[in-house]
């Protein structure tokens, strides 16, 4: 059974000039221990998907349709108090900027102990021991002394290790990591990714890794969901998504990433830009930029269709041949 199941999730923002639909019929699932990558450009809805799952949508944004199930139990309609208990205990969260996600007025030990004691039935002394062990596991040297230091006494990479320790403190089964390495330098990024991967494997935790960096996705994930304009364009195993993408958007996205292994004079480019939420075209959201567009794409929105090893929301993969 899948650990997390998201079905036809719709997130809307009511505004003065009408309602904006920021997520539109997003469906996917995550198996226990699996790492699912979510990629897309800014504004594609990847962070919003993560926020909806951990129940931290910023009002007036709200879930307007669909369901989210964790271990078979519906969690999208829980009252805030119950959701608070799930957050941390069942779902851990890691955010992009380790400086703003730690409280500068608390020592890291206090934050860790508080998190552990909120969720697990342990004494204060035991919680502290656990906290020290967690810090050691995340590769912080001299953890027993460092535990009483404050966030500003740590470097960016070290802070992100603390954030990971916090996310794992109550042993959740799912970690939602939203751009965990974007604020870090490449050499530190490699350390943090290796750490996240190792710790989640040891603990059997599944990860939803949200990032715009395809390189990080390639080395970390089992499966990938590619998002475009609030919808999933393609989802499938990481190797196939990168090497033989089925959706024209995924293909364009892969081709425009400068690659270390080959040189081209000009990069491939997808002309135009992702549509604003106020002006999403009818039919397939990608149709005005698509090189293989045909009539049906402009009228009818495609569902996720089987396209070899992946599933793509593209009429090219309709059974019986989509093309005119």
């Amino acid at each position: 059974m899948s650990l997390l199941r998201v079905e036809h999730l719709v997130v809307e923002f009511p505004g003065r000039r009408g309602t904006l639909r920021a997520l539109d019929q997003v469906s996917f699932d995550i198996a226990p221990g699996e790492i699912l990558g979510v990629v897309g450009e800014s504004g594609a809805g990847k962070s919003l998907t993560g926020a909806a799952i951990i129940g931290l949508l910023e009002p007036p944004g709200h879930i307007a349709g669909g369901e989210i199930h964790l271990e078979g139990r519906r969690i999208d309609n829980l009252p805030p108090e119950q959701m608070r208990r799930i957050r941390g205990r069942k779902i851990g969260a890691i955010f992009q900027d380790p400086l703003t996600s730690l409280n500068p007025l608390y020592s890291i030990g206090r934050m860790l102990v508080e998190t552990i004691m909120t969720h697990l039935p342990v004494s204060a002394a035991e919680a502290r021991q656990r906290a020290i062990r967690l810090l050691k596991d995340t590769g912080i040297a001299a953890a027993a002394e460092r535990i009483d230091h404050y966030p500003h006494q740590f470097s960016g990479g070290m802070r992100q290790r603390v954030v990971i320790a916090l996310a794992l403190a109550a042993e959740p089964q799912l970690i939602v990591a939203d751009e965990p390495t974007t604020a870090l330098d490449v050499s530190i990024q490699a350390q943090i990714i290796a750490l996240l991967k190792r710790l989640c494997k040891e603990r059997g935790a599944a990860v939803m890794l949200i990032t715009h960096d395809m390189g990080v996705i390639a080395e970390t994930c089992d499966r990938v969901a590619v998002m475009y304009a609030g919808r999933i364009a393609e989802i499938g195993p990481v190797h196939e998504i990168i090497n033989q993408p089925a959706h024209p958007y995924t293909r364009g996205l892969m081709a425009c990433i400068p690659d270390m292994t080959q040189e081209r004079d000009l990069l491939h480019q997808i002309d135009g830009a992702m549509p604003r939420l106020t002006a999403i075209p009818p039919g397939c959201a990608f149709n005005p930029r698509c090189e293989q567009v045909f009539e049906r794409c402009r009228q009818e929105r495609p569902e996720l269709l089987a396209a070899g090893p992946t599933r793509a929301a593209c009429w090219l993969h309709a059974s019986g041949g989509g093309e005119p």
């Binding site: 990714i193 080395e219 090497n243």
Partner: peptide, 10 residues
């Protein structure tokens, strides 16, 4: 990170 060697850790 190398794009086309999926799963290969740095």
């Amino acid at each position: 990170p190398k794009m086309h060697d999926t799963g290969r850790a740095r």
